[in-house]
Amino acid sequence: MTDLPEKTERKLGLVIDLDTCVGCHACVIACKGWNTENYGAPLADADAYGTDPVGAFLNRIHTFEVQPDPREDGSLPPAQMFHLPKSCLHCDDAPCVTVCPTGASYKRVEDGIVLVNETDCIGCGLCAWACPYGAREMDPAEKVMKKCTLCVDRIYNDNLPEADRQPACVRTCPAGARHFGDLADPDSAVSRLVEARGGMDLMPEQGTKPVNKYLPPRPRDAEIDVLAPYLAPVDEHPKGFLGWLDRALGKL
């Protein structure tokens, strides 16, 4: 049924650190790889080697530039760059689930994961319209809706070594920017991380109550000057060989 559960026993989800993500897109590729080779319809590409390639991805990285407000003296602080990995946020109040006319979309009571039953999906696309985050994409070959499963076929998979029983994106992240765990348990590592770093929701005004949280960037130093001691101003009046060179070049 596409009614949402009143409450889920656990809230499995991701915590993504915007301070740490280096924007390497390794999670995008790991996700595409795992979800093409395992559960559900493969994530297809259409016209992959042609002029207009499109493909289904469950995780994408957007890069944003933030220009801080001018300082008191009117000068602009340097702009900052952030990489924003975006996949399904497994919302508590998931609008994609309730709009589904067939019941293909559902939120699991036991762990809160939002999934699509691909044999029930009619490919109407309404769930993708209802999602504010662009987390759902229609597969160009299978014509069913694809979305992040939180690697449900990895996290409970006893055939994998224990270290691998986490989503492919988390397992592969070389920067340690992605964390997986139960956000309903206040003592879990992810919950403590959210607590310590002020984890936030994307587009809270949409009322979706996302489970996934994003850790905001830590405050940056006002001036970046770790190298300053080594970068003393160039001598305005050089002597010796440099002095001669300076005078000779000046006369040219």
Binding site: L18, R60, Q67, F82
Partner: peptide, 22 residues
């Protein structure tokens, strides 16, 4: 993006160079 409190946010690089379903 949740970054609005830091200043003016603009897209620097989209996630894909071509089109997508979205």
């Amino acid at each position: 993006t949740g970054l609005g409190h830091l200043g003016q946010v603009r897209l620097f690089e989209p996630p894909h160079t071509g089109g997508s379903y979205l």
